[in-house]
């Protein structure tokens, strides 16, 4: 091969995929890539006020709980992004919260191998505040077929939502679970089929939070949101096939 081409290629690669950035609590070769792809190269800080909790080891790589607690972070949140850096499908969700939401959420995801988990909050100062954690895993969580679809009559339960609101002092926790295979298209002959849109609404229909979901979210997705006060809410979901589901959470 022409050496000049190699040189040019190497230059391109190094300029695109720089090595771990200074101060990263979970140094990763993929940080720069996601900084460009997801955060659009915007200003950021690694901030311990964004606490990401994961189990030290993924006992079940198809159901790995992630908790993001940024209640210590002052200011208004514009957007929250969560991703698993070394996953084949890295993006987990993007949350667009209203002021009615607490800076707290939890979700279960699939991981394919040990990976840094990032939660980035775009605050009203225009800066992404990034929290990090690392989950160890034996792997394979993304390429195993869903258990749901092997069960007979799964379509009768598709989109069933189990959920409840729990009081947590002045505020509430919403804990929700949805019956859905969340197929990510990585398993042979099983096309993508997953919930990709969600909205949490109050009783008047006003949107409290809009969420874009990706197929890194576990099958039968489990989602926990913190909301201010004790309102009754409604959850609306739509999958990539166009199925829509709603549930009232009194």
């Amino acid at each position: 091969m022409n050496t000049r081409i190699i040189y040019a290629l190497a230059l391109t690669l190094t300029s695109c995929w720089a090595h771990a950035v200074e101060g990263d609590p979970q140094p990763s070769v993929m940080w720069e890539y996601f900084h460009q792809r997801l955060l659009d190269n915007a200003d950021f800080v690694f901030d311990e006020a964004v606490k990401v909790s994961v189990p030290p080891f993924a006992e079940d790589a198809r159901q790995v709980p992630i908790e993001v607690d940024a209640r210590a972070l002052p200011g208004k949140v514009e957007r929250v992004m969560i991703w698993a850096e070394l996953n084949p499908i890295p993006q987990v969700l993007t949350l667009y919260p209203s002021a009615e939401l607490e800076k707290f959420l939890a979700v279960r995801i699939r991981v394919e191998q040990a990976t840094p988990i990032r939660a980035a909050l775009l605050m009203d100062d225009g800066i992404w505040h990034v929290g990090s954690a690392r989950v160890e895993a034996a792997g394979g969580g993304c390429s195993a077929p869903s258990v749901v679809r092997a069960q007979e009559g799964w379509e009768d339960h598709l989109g069933e939502i189990f959920g409840a609101r729990f009081k947590a002092g002045d505020n509430s926790r919403l804990r929700l679970s949805v019956s859905h295979p969340m197929d990510n298209g990585l398993v042979d002959s099983i096309p993508e089929f997953y919930v990709n849109q969600a909205e949490l609404r109050d009783r008047s229909g006003a949107v409290l939070a809009r969420i874009d979901l990706f197929s890194a979210v576990s099958e039968n997705p489990t989602l926990t949101l913190g909301i201010k006060g004790h309102p009754e809410t409604q959850l609306w979901l739509r999958d990539n096939n166009g199925n829509e589901f709603t549930a009232d959470i009194p």
Binding site: T12, S15, C16, G23, Q36, V45, F46, E48, A72
Partner: peptide, 18 residues
């Protein structure tokens, strides 16, 4: 509470961003 210094981005790499 620890926070890293602000990483400010001045130039976009058109090559990578395209």
């Amino acid at each position: 509470m620890k926070r890293t210094r602000l990483h400010q981005m001045f130039a976009l790499s058109a090559l990578c961003g395209a």
